[in-house]
Design a binder for these strands. Structure first.
Length: 961
RNA sequence: GCCGGGUUGGCGGAAUCGGUAGACGCGACGGUCUCAAAAACCGUUGUCCGAGAGGGCGUGCGGGUUCAAGUCCCGCACCCGGCACCA
């Protein structure tokens, strides 16, 4: 796209607001804010406390912090940062103590890969990237408290990440009290300190977990790094499923609280929905089906629909289910349907072949296979409610990892069971009738009434789904054939990585292999220097090899002698590192007290910033004492727990589940243990959209630089795009180097200045919506600021031309309407419409040639959150000494918002036929009379009889004929 | 397939409760200024018919409720995001 913005100030007006003047103003004010510490937020106590009285209310807002990438920023990145800056500046002008800072999420794979390929320490490269991003962001003029900026790799930060890990390690979950408690209390309760028993209860525990092991790369891979063919995305090496000793976090213990506490959060409903679905709580029953022919064999299934038990006509085990070998028979029973045999001469062979085929498939392949496949095991089980003999199959549509890995199949009322039953010729008896007795088509999965569901003891007939569930569960429990249960889709959090660039675990192992915490005074455990950042690689097909993390090779780091209470002994350090998520799981807390050396944050600072609602500064210290058992977890109502946390958290929806779930989990553990005052970290969440961009490809499919593409209209009126005269195709998506469509903030600073860039990004559309970048439209925002400048400053002389005279009544009314509208929009985050109202006001002032202080000063204050440098400059030019950052935001005068006359619309048959100016106080009769007198209205009525007149005084008269 | 979000002028978008659809900006067109151009400023700009007054049509498509629907209800199409046989 060709850009034709104003590159330099036109010579005709030496003091016109343009890129050059903007750059000078912006630099000057940024330096001044920094020198004066304008945006330093005062803490109640500690190093960042001035001792002065704090404002009555606080406002803590945060952005999801960035990963310091080497590519630097493009214009899409600052979108959220500008928005939070506007909101923060506005809240400050409302008199609140605003905490806003930005840290860096600086551990991670890209830096490690860079280190592997260059040999440069990842810290060196990461710090350089952070410095570059700081430079780019500084020029935006963000009102951050830079004393509170940190990176997750700072030793001072790592120390507390490790400390929190140890808190989790030294805790267990008390199911009765529904909260985490210190491990010492478990020792007391169980009356044993047997490490094997104790370790098995810890919230951070070691277990064997299956991983994607890639010997060729020497690393474990995430699912998304494995191709459908079961090879590594990088390098195309084979990947093997392998069990590995791993650290895990017992997040499943918090499943209920993580779901229940969502109710009190001010989050977008879709995000809550996604978290609920991810945790996947389902209520149902576990039911035992006996296999009469095999001694002591009974198949336990999980079902969410125990009410349909009478309709179970067969069962399915996952191919990996442990009972398969025990029940599979040697010969096909008499009369076995040949569709059930898989063409094999015996069940043993059929099952073996089916299992081999399933094992050879990757998860992805198994899931892509829509066709229902399976084989009969030759065995039958007895339906506990009616004794019916039901055949048992093995099929891969049942997953070993969910529920019990076995199901009872009710084909009449489950889509998948129905598909399977159809393919295998199994009966599909109906046991639920549709509402109103309608006999819907099968499978019928909706709510209805139980039918044909009775035995000698119990009848479900006539009951709705919930009542039927309740009754059958009671019966199963009484008979000892099943129990009501709840299962979750959520799994524990795999917490170790075989990498270098992450937080080391503060864990050592004794000679028996038991883990011990490194004492607090030895934290942080810092990463040792290593000769080589690459993990050890193996022959690509050496499935038996084992990951060897880089830390494992530093022998004099791994082996230490420590005194953990029973004299100096040799220990071996944990050589895995923590995942990237660790730092982001608690960083909000560190903003509140970033320099604290004695605690992750002082409780008083934490209570002040994270406290309930705004202005919790002087809430009583012990009030919500988390140590008190009855105020924790399940005890406290969700409302009470959730009114705490960061006042506003802005970030992309891609973090809807993982980051936000992990952070909530850590926060709840810290809450249970008494380290924080509330159960939720983020009270209000807003998802920002993305800035997208057009990219252009030539006939060969190669990307051409977007800024060189010319747009024109051909003879037929269609828009065509050409590059060097050659037509190119347009596509729409991300901004990226490879797409040759990157526009950087630096480009915008140079061409227009930061204020123009800020205003443009905020005016493009609502915050939560994605939108395309259009460089040529930026000039509109520049013109707006130019007009604003011209109202205050004479472009030719540079002199301030504000006069101390009252404005005319009309302008005063427009001003106060603007103030009211802008306030409303800022409260509801309608930043784009707030700017539109400011533009309208400026256009009005331009038209009437207003120069009055009364009209201009409130305008400067309202513009300040959006274009702070320009506003500060004009504020000082109109005769003010200090920064306007703490000036009260203008208040509307209610008496000026009342209109004397309003426009009244007259509709005939629903169509607008006339508008009239009427007094705001006009009554129905008066309006009707005036409407009837309108010539247009009479013409539309056309002599017909008026049947009805609806009046909504004073805005509308609707006439029906 | 399921879940969530969306579809409004040439373009980005606005329309708080069902009550004048298209605020504001870009672009385009016309004008002022200028030797000229740029910048700036002023005006026009959903579409069709009409000289005008005015009128027809119009918020993805098809129905419905209502005096009145971008907004509410039913059905459908397409686009974006997420999840994927979860019993």
């Amino acid at each position: 796209m060709s850009t034709s913005g104003p590159h330099v100030d036109a010579p005709i007006a030496p003091h016109r607001y343009g890129a050059r003047l903007a750059a000078e103003i912006e630099q000057r004010w940024q330096d001044r804010w920094e020198a004066e510490g304008t945006f330093h937020a005062d803490n109640p106590v500690g190093e960042l406390s001035s001792g002065a009285d704090l404002p009555a209310e606080k406002y803590f807002l945060m952005d999801m912090f960035p990963y310091p990438s080497g590519a630097g920023l493009h214009v899409g990145h600052p979108l959220g940062y500008i928005a939070t800056d506007v909101i923060g500046r506005y809240q400050r002008m409302l008199g609140k103590n605003v905490l806003h800072a930005l840290g860096y999420d600086a551990f991670g794979l890209p830096a490690e890969l860079h280190a592997i390929s260059t040999g440069e320490h990842p810290r060196t490269n990461t710090l350089a990237n952070i410095a570059n991003m700081r430079r780019q962001l500084r020029r935006l003029g963000l009102a951050h408290d830079d004393r509170r900026s940190f990176a997750t790799i700072d030793p001072d930060f790592v120390r507390w990440t490790q400390w929190i890990f140890l808190q989790i390690f030294e805790s267990w979950y008390d199911e009765e009290q529904q909260r985490a408690r210190p491990i010492a209390e478990l020792v007391e309760k169980l009356g044993t300190d047997d490490p094997d028993v104790i370790d098995a209860h810890r919230l951070a525990y070691i277990s064997e977990a299956p991983v994607n092991w890639c010997p060729g790369l020497g690393t474990v891979l995430a699912n998304e790094e494995v191709t459908a063919e079961g090879r590594s995305e990088r390098g195309n090496f084979p990947v093997f499923q392998r069990s590995l000793r791993q650290w895990n976090m017992r997040i499943t213990a918090y499943a209920d609280r993580l779901i229940d506490d969502l109710d009190g959060l001010d989050w977008p409903e879709p995000v809550k929905q996604m978290q609920r679905h991810w945790i996947g709580r389902s209520h149902g029953a576990e039911v035992d089906f006996e296999v009469p022919e095999v001694e002591n064999a009974s198949i336990r299934v999980f079902t969410t629909r125990p009410d349909t038990l009478f309709g179970a006509t067969y069962m399915v085990l996952a191919p990996e289910h442990e009972l398969v070998d025990a029940i599979v028979t040697d010969a096909w029973p008499e009369g076995t349907d040949e569709r059930w045999t898989g063409g094999a001469p015996s069940p043993t062979e059929a099952v073996a072949a089916y299992r081999a085929a399933a094992a050879a498939k990757t998860d992805v392949e198994r899931q892509e296979n829509r066709e229902k496949t399976g084989v009969f095991t030759g065995a039958f089980a007895a339906n506990p409610v009616n004794g019916a003999r039901v055949p048992v199959f093995v099929a891969d549509y049942v997953l070993v990892g969910y529920g019990t890995g076995a199901i009872m199949a009710v084909p009449a009322h489950d889509e998948r069971d129905f598909a399977f039953a159809t393919a295998f010729g199994l009966p599909t008896p109906r046991v639920v009738a549709g509402p109103d007795g309608v006999d819907d088509e099968l499978p019928f999965t909706g709510a209805g009434t139980a039918v044909a569901s009775a035995n000698d003891d119990v009848s479900l007939d006539g009951l709705d789904v919930d009542a039927a569930k309740e009754r059958i569960i009671a019966w199963l429990e009484a008979e000892g054939r099943g129990t009501g249960t709840t299962t979750y889709r959520l799994r524990d959090w795999l917490f170790s990585r075989q990498r270098y660039w992450g937080e080391p675990f503060p864990i050592v192992y004794d000679e028996d292999g038991h883990p011990h915490a490194v004492p607090d005074h030895l934290l942080p455990v810092e990463l040792p220097e290593v000769p080589d950042y690459s993990p050890r690689t193996f022959e690509p097909d050496d499935a038996d090899s084992e990951p060897e993390p880089p830390l494992g090779r530093v022998q004099d780091w791994v082996h230490v002698t420590l005194d953990l209470g029973d004299g100096p002994r040799p220990y071996r350090r944990e050589t895995n590192t923590m995942p990237n998520w660790a730092g982001s799981s608690w960083y909000e807390l560190r903003y509140t007290d970033p320099t604290n050396r004695d605690a992750l944050c002082d409780p008083e600072n934490e209570r002040y910033w994270m406290g309930a609602g705004t202005g919790a500064a002087n809430s009583t210290g012990g009030g919500a004492g988390p140590g008190a058992a009855n105020s924790t977890g399940g005890g406290a109502g969700p409302g009470a727990a959730n009114s705490t946390g960061v006042d506003l958290y802005v970030g992309g929806v891609e973090h809807a589940v993982l980051h936000l779930l992990y952070a909530r989990f850590w926060h709840k553990v810290l809450f249970d243990l008494g380290h924080v005052s509330g159960a939720e970290p983020f009270h209000r969440l807003v998802n920002q959209g993305y800035i997208q961009a057009h990219a252009f490809t030539d006939a060969r499919g190669t990307y051409v630089p977007a800024e060189e593409v010319v747009e024109s209209v051909d003879e037929s009126g269609a828009t065509v795009y050409t590059h060097d005269g050659v037509p190119v195709a347009r596509e729409y998506g991300k901004m990226g180097k490879s797409l040759k469509n990157v526009v950087t903030p630096d480009d915008m600073y140079d061409e227009y200045g930061a204020d123009t860039f800020r205003v443009y990004e905020m005016s493009m559309g609502p915050l939560d919506q994605s939108r395309p970048w259009e460089t040529r439209a930026v000039v509109g925002s520049q013109r707006f600021l130019q007009r604003l400048w011209r109202l205050v400053v004479d472009e030719d002389t540079g002199e301030t031309q504000v006069v101390d005279e009252p404005t005319d009544e009309a302008t005063r009314r427009v001003l106060h309407r603007t103030i009211a509208g802008v306030r409303d929009d800022l409260e509801s985050l309608g930043l784009n419409t707030a700017i539109a109202k400011l533009i309208e006001y400026v256009n009005h002032l331009t038209k009437v040639g207003a120069r009055q202080r009364e009209a201009l000063e409130p305008l400067l204050l309202m513009v300040a959150p959006f274009a702070p440098h320009l506003a500060e400059e004009l504020w000082s030019r109109t005769g003010h000494d200090g920064s306007l950052a703490f000036e009260p935001f203008p208040q509307p005068d209610p008496s000026l918002l009342v209109e004397d006359t309003v426009t009244c619309v007259v509709q005939v048959q629903g169509k607008v036929r006339s508008t009239m100016q009427v007094p705001a106080s006009a009554d129905d009769a008066e309006l009707t009379e005036r409407a009837m007198a309108e010539a247009n209205v009479q013409r539309a009525i056309d002599g017909r009889e008026v049947r009805k007149v609806i009046v909504r005084a004073p805005k509308l008269v609707s006439i029906v004929v």
